[in-house]
Amino acid sequence: MIKVLVVDDQILVRAGLVALLRAAPDLDVVGEAATGEEAIEQAAATRPDVILMDIRMPGMNGVTATERILAMNHDPRPRVLILTTFDVDKYVYNALRVGASGFLLKDTPPERLIAAILTVSSGDMLFAPTVTRRLIEAYTSQAGPSAAPPSPALDLLTAREVEVLKLVGRALSNAEIATRLCVSEATVKTHLNRAMTKLNLTSRAQAVALAYESGLITPGRETTSRL
């Protein structure tokens, strides 16, 4: 059973999510919270596998709560799936930077929400369809055309590791990257893991953010989304 913690400050939304998930096979709602502070307490007490995290809440928002929960050093760490009303939201981007596993819009159909929980619980990253490019490019474009130059940290990577990181930044899966580079998925995973270790990254989502921030990907280039 996948243990799920539901965090949302709106009681009707939270109750609806809890009812939906409790009716789904293989999912066990182990707690619910209405604030970021409660989310941290519940995460420590229930040790969920996946946290559905509302991003906009009074007091501590979902980004800060996510960062503090993922800093607890629990093993394994929970996967945080951000829920938002807005498809372009700087808070969502910041949540990816601190290690969230992906995000969905609150109007996502129930079957897709359940599929998303299964996806992130298995270790994959997930973005809502059609949103990835608009989200990241809208945020990074605020810096203008003379955004930060490529990070010196990239000098630590091999040419193939840079290539894999760039494709991860475009939200391609390991299977899609393997097909693009004509290598095995295991090889892709090895290159990505080595790159993330060298760059001190703890999640695939952080790798996506770094690919944009470092200049590996230029806003306006084509990207793809999972699901």
Rank of each mutant, 00 (worst) to 15 (best):
V6W: 02
V98P: 00
K166S: 05
N174V: 11
P48K: 15
A211S: 12
T85F: 03
P149V: 10
H74T: 05
G144N: 11
T223Y: 09
R112A: 06
R180Q: 03
L83N: 04
A45F: 04
N193P: 02
S101I: 10
I114W: 08
Y139R: 01
R112F: 09
E163D: 15
V208W: 00
H191K: 10
P129C: 09
R56Q: 09
V168T: 09
A43H: 06
A175H: 14
A33D: 03
I217N: 00
F103H: 05
Y93D: 14
P109W: 00
L172W: 12
P110A: 03
A138S: 02
V92N: 06
A186K: 07
A205M: 03
N73A: 04
V4T: 04
G59F: 08
S151Y: 00
L105P: 01
D89M: 06
A186R: 02
V168Q: 07
D54W: 06
M1L: 10
L118S: 11
M57V: 08
L227E: 00
G36C: 04
M72R: 12
M57H: 15
L113I: 11
E38M: 07
T197K: 14
L81H: 01
M72V: 02
R14P: 03
L156S: 14
S101F: 13
E111Q: 04
V188L: 03
R194Q: 14
